[in-house]
């Protein structure tokens, strides 16, 4: 990266780096594609990173 134009064949842009965006990015990478994960805030994670535990098993969400 670094240059203004990124030209890669076989790439996908994902808009939003919450749990949905992250999971899609992980799967697409494993399926053989290059992913640009575009997130408007300074860190990925979305709302799930704010949660303490999750329903119904009360597993830690981080």
């Amino acid at each position: 990266m670094g240059k203004a134009m990124n030209h890669r064949e076989g790439s996908v842009m994902i808009l939003g780096g919450g749990i949905a965006g992250i999971q899609a990015a992980l799967d697409l990478t494993e399926l053989g594609f290059y992913v640009y994960l575009v997130e408007k805030s300074p860190a990925v994670g979305g709302v799930m990173a704010q949660l303490d535990k999750t329903f119904p098993t009360n597993d830690c969400s981080l």
């Binding site: 990124n6 996908v12 842009m13 919450g18």
Partner: peptide, 16 residues
């Protein structure tokens, strides 16, 4: 910095 990305598909997952 403005950047242009050339991509084949787009997934929208902006949350709520």
């Amino acid at each position: 910095e403005e950047r242009k990305l050339h991509v084949g598909a787009v997934i929208l997952s902006p949350g709520f």
